[in-house]
């Protein structure tokens, strides 16, 4: 464990807390993509299936349970919460996720770290899907132009988590002999690259004060 990975995990937890605060606390799903929320639930339920047999680290075990629980809670409230459904904009949240899930599934089968292990195929699928899972959310924000304050912090924390993981991988590559994880490195790079435009606008709007809303062209 290094500081970059720890801060990355904390940023990931923060993104969940912000989203839960908005959806469950604020009873509003305005500006939030259910499609992204559902893809994240798929990402965690597939990748963390090793909860059933891998007890290597209590820290990982607890956070995996937290991430699965939080992502399913978010999907549940967005689908069945009366006030959440009322504020959720299904028409605008229209990114065709089948064009994301299918290629990731094919890639997961073809490119993984042990072709004899079904779990490795599922694990690779989950890594690829996470890289593109934010697209419906960014697509929705782009359509709406203005990003509500809490939502902007949620997306920023979610983007920052994988950016911090990139630093974690660089650190591990430099300090650990023959450490290599090409699949997560490339996927993490793509995932973080997708946020660049948002990061830019987030920075532009927040440098004038944390409560300014983010405007996307």
């Amino acid at each position: 464990m290094n500081i970059f990975r720890f801060l990355g995990d904390m940023s990931h937890i923060l993104s969940f807390l912000l989203l839960l605060h908005k959806i469950v606390g604020g009873k509003s799903a305005a500006g939030i993509s259910l499609r992204t929320a559902e893809m994240y639930a798929i990402v965690f339920c597939t990748r963390y299936i090793d909860l059933l047999w891998n007890f290597a680290s209590l820290y990982n075990y607890l956070l995996k349970l937290l991430f699965i629980g939080a992502s399913l809670t978010i999907v549940y409230f967005m689908r069945y919460g009366p006030s959440q459904k009322a504020t959720y904009n299904a028409d605008e949240d229209a990114f065709p996720v089948q064009y994301l899930i299918a290629p990731c599934a094919v890639l997961g089968v073809l490119i993984n770290q042990d072709h004899s292990s079904p779990f490795e195929m599922v694990w690779a699928f989950s890594i690829y899907l996470e890289a593109v899972a934010i697209l419906p959310q960014l697509f929705l924000l782009q359509k709406q132009g203005e990003v509500e304050n809490l939502t902007s912090h949620y997306v920023f924390a979610l983007g920052a988590y994988r950016a911090l993981y990139l630093l974690n991988w660089m650190f591990r590559f430099m300090t650990e002999p023959d450490y290599q994880q090409r699949i997560v490195w490339l996927s993490g790079l793509v995932q973080t690259a997708l946020y660049c435009d948002f990061f830019y606008h987030y920075y532009q709007s927040k440098k004038g004060g944390l409560n300014k809303s983010v405007k996307l062209p």
Partner: peptide, 10 residues
């Protein structure tokens, strides 16, 4: 390709 790793990260 076979890469020696255990999934020690989230």
């Amino acid at each position: 390709e076979q890469e020696d790793h255990e999934h020690d990260e989230l």
